[in-house]
């Protein structure tokens, strides 16, 4: 069971994440979009969406620090365990609360505004369930364990386990016996990662940073000189004739 949950599942999820994105990028450019619903409703969105997205970006940054960077490294640059803990709890709580508040507004909007509700697909619903669970358990970990429960040092268990997956020397046993909410959080995130490329979450990978350096007006020539330059044929096109 330990191996299945903390060794097999993560690798399956990562594989699905990577391969799924490549597959979708190659075959579904047309479906690669934010599928924004702002044209249906703007007032609530303008409140909830920035809260949620900026909060989530901060949360992501926190995860990179907390899970990606070993405790020995932060100690080496002179950040004590207490200082790190204080930072992680305060920033984590702040960004987590922004995310949860944003999520609450967006979910409220999604289920009460008829036009937005009707634009919600089954995939969306599953994705929202996973995403909400991941965010709420994460919030619970930060608030419940650290503030109320006296703190749990995930940097001794979860973080090394996660990194061990990438150094290809997995240590699934590290995850045994950690608090249940941490386990659930990790599992839900893994499932979310596995499903990521098949949902609208792909829009994360089209963050348009290139816009900052691009010329304002884009010119393109008609694609007549290289009709075969598209790597993948349109479904309705037949093979070129042999002459």
């Amino acid at each position: 069971m330990t191996t299945l949950l903390w060794l097999t599942l993560p690798y399956v999820a990562f594989t699905s994440f990577v391969v799924g994105h490549i597959w979708r990028y190659r075959h579904d450019q047309f479906g690669w979009t934010t599928r924004s619903s702002q044209s249906h409703e703007g007032r609530l969105l303008r409140l909830g969406s920035p809260l949620f997205h900026f909060g989530l970006l901060a949360v992501l940054g926190g995860h990179v620090l907390g899970i990606g960077v070993p405790a020995s490294w932060t100690a080496a640059v002179g950040v004590s365990g207490e200082a790190y803990h204080l930072m992680s709890v305060s920033f984590g709580t702040l960004s987590g609360l922004a995310t949860v508040a944003g999520l609450a507004i967006l979910l409220y909007r999604r289920f009460t505004v008829t036009a937005v509700r009707k634009a919600t697909t089954t995939t969306d619903k599953i994705m929202y369930l996973l995403l909400s669970t991941a965010i709420l358990t994460g919030m619970l970990n930060t608030l419940g364990s650290n503030l109320i429960g006296g703190g749990y040092d995930y940097r001794a268990t979860v973080s090394p386990w996660f990194r061990s997956l990438f150094t290809l020397s997995p240590q699934p046993e590290l995850m045994v016996g950690i608090p249940l909410s941490f386990q659930i959080h990790a599992l839900v995130v893994l499932v979310l990662l596995a499903g990521w490329p098949y949902t609208r979450l792909v829009h994360v990978f089209s963050a348009p940073v290139g816009y900052l350096v691009r010329p304002y007006v884009v010119y393109r020539t008609r694609d007549v000189a290289h009709p075969g330059s598209r790597r993948y044929a349109r479904a309705w096109e037949t093979a070129p004739p042999r002459r």
Binding site: P208, Y211, R214, V217, V218, Y219, R220, T221
Partner: peptide, 8 residues
């Protein structure tokens, strides 16, 4: 995204 272009 640079998706809108003017045909030269």
């Amino acid at each position: 995204s640079g998706a809108i272009y003017k045909r030269s």
